[in-house]
Amino acid sequence: MSIIDTHCDLLYKMFLDRKVQFAEGNGDADVSYTRLVKAGVVLQWFAIYLPDNPAYYSFDHVLTCIDLFRTRIAACPQVEFIKSRQDFDKLLKDKRKLGAMLTLEGVEGLAANMGNLRTAYDLGVRSIGITWNHANWAADGVGEPRQGGFTVRGKQFINECDRLGIILDVSHLSEKAFWELCEQSSRPFIASHSNAYRICPHVRNLKDDQIRAIIEKNGRIGITFVPAFVRAEHPQIKDLLLHIEHICSLGGENCVGFGSDFDGTDLKIPGLENPAHYCQLVDELHKRYTTEQAERFLSGNWKTYLLKNLPE
């Protein structure tokens, strides 16, 4: 059974510590080639996240992370760098390689420059989360006290991403900005690593009306394993299924996927500490859902989305 995971922060660890390896991994990182293959991951998204410090808000640092991805991950002979529908379709048919897709979490490093955005696209960035928790030049994040929406430049950014075919990601985005994106973007957007607020009322999780809007847009929601987003106290693997069940109850069975956020937090759900443990989640899915439903959640829903929304 194949898996698509839409968020991990291995690149962040590589950026902070150049000794962190992908091919075999080490004790400091959750994600490695060996663990992904053991889990049955067919496509892993790798996020460029820069430290939450203005000293890193430059395009040079974004380029450094892109170079780390291209030379330390995508250059591995057993890895396929996914940039188009054709790349992804070939990956699914070939089944001999691990797919790797490059994303950006927070646009601070683009420095409000659409030329930088286009360069990032040319170098392989295919999905962008507009903010982290705070405000930037484009929009407010969920942790910004004023809870504003998009700036004028931010709305230009939406239009340019739509033109290029970049997938926009609302995880970390403020509610007001979420609804402005919903109104302005002509393309189905995603939440790469967010859960259901009704099940766990964390500011990073999605309210029911937001979930319904993503469903109506035919976007996708990646259920994340960050413990605080799953359950307030002592979360277990089975608690992830409560979020899936709730999204399905709103009509989102075809919109559910997974975005683990491995390497993005030191706290773990017991039994789900790294990608090699995905099998435990697969077992729980099979206890409650049919094989067809489990396959849809693990990869099928993301497959149909990417075959339609990656650029030609």
Rank of each mutant, 00 (worst) to 15 (best):
A74N: 15
K238C: 07
M14T: 07
A139T: 04
V152E: 13
V42K: 03
R153W: 03
L98Q: 13
I82A: 05
N113P: 14
L310F: 08
F258S: 10
T103H: 10
Q21T: 14
Y33V: 02
R212F: 06
I211G: 12
Y56F: 07
G252R: 15
L272Y: 14
K19E: 14
D17L: 05
I130A: 11
M14Y: 11
E245W: 00
A139G: 07
S2A: 11
K303Q: 04
L63I: 14
N195P: 15
D140V: 01
L272A: 06
G252I: 15
S84C: 12
L168M: 00
K238T: 09
F81N: 12
I4Y: 13
I247H: 02
I66N: 13
G259E: 04
V256G: 07
M14N: 02
V230C: 06
L281R: 02
E292L: 04
N309I: 06
F69N: 07
A29V: 12
L181W: 15
A213W: 04
T131V: 07
C8I: 06
A276Y: 01
V20G: 02
Q78M: 09
V170R: 06
K95E: 15
Q184S: 14
V282H: 11
S192L: 01
I199L: 04
M114S: 15
L63H: 14
E312V: 15
T224Y: 02
F59H: 07
N254E: 03
A111S: 09
K176V: 03
D17F: 07
Q293I: 10
L306C: 03
A111P: 06
Y33Q: 05
D60S: 11
P54G: 02
L307C: 02
N159C: 10
H61S: 12
K308C: 02
R198H: 14
H172T: 09
I73C: 06
E245C: 06
G115S: 15
N301F: 06
Q44K: 03
Q280P: 01
M1E: 13
L281E: 09
V125R: 00
G109K: 07
H243P: 10
L117P: 14
L181R: 08
R231P: 01
A39P: 00
S58V: 07
V125M: 00
E245F: 01
M114V: 13
V79H: 13
H234A: 13
T151K: 00
C200K: 04
